[in-house]
């Protein structure tokens, strides 16, 4: 159907698309269907899965991945990866803990210093990317390895062990804990504050993505960077901003890690970057960029949470979790591809 034909036939239009058709066009659809399937599955095989208290645990597990899946999804829509996201969380926690301990400063000072350092790490990733024009896979793989080494090396050098010293008796600790690691009970359900952080981030990211100029630029930077540049979109600035958003969320996650356990193991976080990417991809983000949503990443993280805790409630050997995750990733990606094909054909 060319535009000319449409003109020729005057006002004749297609009937408005049905609600089902519109839903098919959403990137999250595949993830929502998958989430419903996983929920039903564990409801049947695990008796305790449907208890309200179990939901609190599932949501907590989802939120720890979800907080990072949101910026990783935005970054993926912008056409890039960040393999250093997992260890950056640990780095952020280590900086905060060790700065407060060594300087015997208020923990809030450590939290502030950690924010600056983590944002600088994100900016490093972003600026390296736009300056060298190397693939983000290589650059962030480099950052990932360097941070892994730094986390272990510096922690041993400063604390003498692979874990940091406890900072639970330091000034400012209780208030920091309130912000990053508190929990409260509603009825019989124990809810962690990370769930609020997670949902808040999803709302903000969705707003940015769909209703701001920056969001338009993120889609364009991932969809066709050259075309975006040709019409005046600051592609480089957008990408650096995205890496700093990942760093900002790594800071939130890192502070949660620190203030919920008050010590940090320096080897933690390795491998988590893939969980974030998996959540984003299950949520409908296209590996090649230019398509996806923040809500989808939340649904992806929720699937992850249900699977990781559901296996425990079903009293299976948790070793099967990895297999389950891999199978789910493949299924979700296939489903997404199929849905997208249907959606594009329906237009």
């Amino acid at each position: 159907m060319s535009a000319l034909d449409v003109i020729g036939t005057g006002d004749e239009r297609l009937a408005p698309r049905s609600v089902a058709r519109r839903l098919l066009g959403r990137p999250e659809l595949g993830a929502v269907v998958g989430a419903a399937a996983v929920f039903l599955f564990f409801s049947v095989v695990a008796d305790s899965f449907l208890r309200a208290s179990s939901m609190g645990t599932v949501l907590y597990a989802s939120s720890t991945i979800g907080i990072m899946a949101v910026p990783v999804a935005l970054l993926m829509i912008g056409g890039e990866f960040d393999l250093s996201a997992g260890v950056m969380v640990t780095s952020s926690a280590l900086v905060s803990s060790m700065f407060s301990f060594q300087m015997t400063a208020n923990t809030w000072v450590g939290v502030g210093v950690s924010l600056l350092v983590t944002l600088a790490l994100g900016a490093f990733n972003g600026i390296m990317l736009v300056r060298t024009k190397l693939p983000s896979f290589i650059i962030t793989l480099g950052t990932f390895l360097m941070l892994t080494g730094l986390n272990l090396g510096l922690t041993k050098l400063i604390s003498g062990t692979v874990a940091t010293k406890s900072i639970s008796d330091m000034q400012g600790f209780p208030t920091c804990r309130d912000l990053f690691a508190s929990h409260w009970t509603v009825g019989s359900v124990d809810l962690q504050v990370t769930i609020l952080w997670w949902l808040g981030l999803v709302v903000v990211a969705t707003w940015v993505l769909l209703r701001t100029r920056a969001g338009n630029w993120i889609f364009a930077a991932g969809g066709n960077a050259d075309a975006a540049r040709a019409v005046g979109v600051p592609v480089a600035r957008t990408k650096v901003g995205l890496y700093m958003a990942v760093a900002f969320c790594a800071w939130i996650s890192g502070q949660h890690l620190l203030f919920s356990f008050d010590v940090v193991q320096s080897g933690e976080g390795v491998g988590n970057e893939f969980l974030y990417i998996i959540a984003a991809v299950i949520g409908g983000c296209l590996m090649t960029g230019g398509y996806g949503s923040a809500i989808g990443s939340a649904v992806g993280a929720f699937i992850f949470g249900m699977a990781s805790k559901g296996i425990v409630y079903a009293q299976w050997n948790p070793d099967w979790f990895q297999f389950f995750l891999g199978a789910m990733l493949l299924l979700a990606t296939l489903l997404n591809a199929w849905v997208r094909k249907r959606a594009e054909a329906s237009k």
């Binding site: 338009n216 889609f219 066709n224 050259d226 975006a228």
Partner: peptide, 12 residues
């Protein structure tokens, strides 16, 4: 080739 970003809606 550089005219548009294919996956974005026309108005965007």
């Amino acid at each position: 080739d550089l005219a548009v970003v294919p996956l974005m809606p026309v108005w965007r």
